[in-house]
Every structure is written in C-alpha cells, then in structure tokens.
Simulated assay, not measured.
Amino acid sequence: MSLFHAVVWLDHHQAQILQFDAEHVEAQKVKASSRHTRTHGSGVRTEHEFFGHVCDALSGITEVLVTGSNSAMADFRHYVEKHRAPVGKQIVGYEPVDHPTENQLIAEARKYFVKYDRMNGTPTPM
C-alpha cells in the first residue's frame, strides 16, 4: 500500500516510520547497527549507515515530517543535505518531540499535515 504522508521519529539509535492516511497506518522500525569496531571514525560511519537506511525506508513517500530530539534531527538533516538531497525534497518539516506513543505521533502528524497542506493550497489526501 502506498501512502502519501509519513512521520519519522528518530534518535541516534533507532527510527520509527509511520506512513498513514485517514484509515490506515503502516509502521516500520529501523535500528542502528550495534557492531563496534576499533576503526577511527567508525561511529560516524555507523551513524551514516543508519541514516542511509532511514532514507531508503522513505523511498516513494511524498511528504515526510521528521521528529525527534534536536540533536538527532540536526544530524539527520545534515546527512540528508550532504548525501541524500533527493530525500530532502520529500521532507516538509522538522519538529522536536520527546518520546511520543505511536498514537500521539500520528495525531501530531495529522495536525501538522492539515496545516501544511492548507498553507500550500494542496488538498490533504488523508
């Protein structure tokens, strides 16, 4: 099922991706690799690999809202701008949130997209 909107909640270790419309929600989780190496800079490579998997999971989604801690969102945004510019075009906003439940996250995303679509003059296909 291809859904129009998605909300992503992420930190530096995991991401929860929820695609939704008015009646359906599809959930997907992406976790960072837990392998530890002694190689210098392996933490950066592991983070880039994780963010790459998150970007791959967003393939085909028209509008994405990214949520999470300010630091995780800033790091993800930097990664997207530098390495995955096409995904950046799908992301319509960044909103800081703590640790919401799935239902809270969907409710906030629905409110966000109603406002976003109204401001852009596009009908909300929810």
Rank of each mutant, 00 (worst) to 15 (best):
Y116R: 10
Q104E: 15
D117W: 06
L65I: 00
W9C: 02
S69P: 00
H83L: 11
H36F: 10
N103W: 03
D75C: 08
T101R: 03
F4K: 07
A109Y: 05
M73T: 00
E23A: 10
A6H: 02
Y94V: 07
R77C: 11
A57R: 12
R35D: 07
S42E: 15
D75W: 03
V8C: 04
G41A: 13
H24S: 14
D117L: 09
E63N: 01
G121W: 01
E81A: 14
H48T: 01
P86W: 02
N120H: 14
G88Q: 04
V25C: 05
F20K: 08
V54R: 03
F50K: 07
E23Q: 14
M1P: 06
P123Q: 09
E102H: 07
Q104D: 13
S33R: 08
A57V: 02
L10F: 06
H24M: 13
H24C: 05
E81N: 13
R38G: 14
T101K: 06
L10S: 07
P96E: 11
H99I: 04
W9F: 06
D56S: 15
T37D: 08
V92A: 14
E81D: 15
Y94F: 15
A27P: 07
Y79D: 07
Y116M: 01
L105Y: 04
H13A: 08
R45E: 12
E95S: 05
V64T: 10
H83N: 09
H12R: 13
H36I: 15
L10R: 00
S59Y: 09
K82I: 04
V25E: 13
A15V: 08
Q14D: 12
I17D: 01
A85N: 04
I61L: 02
G60V: 01
A57Y: 03
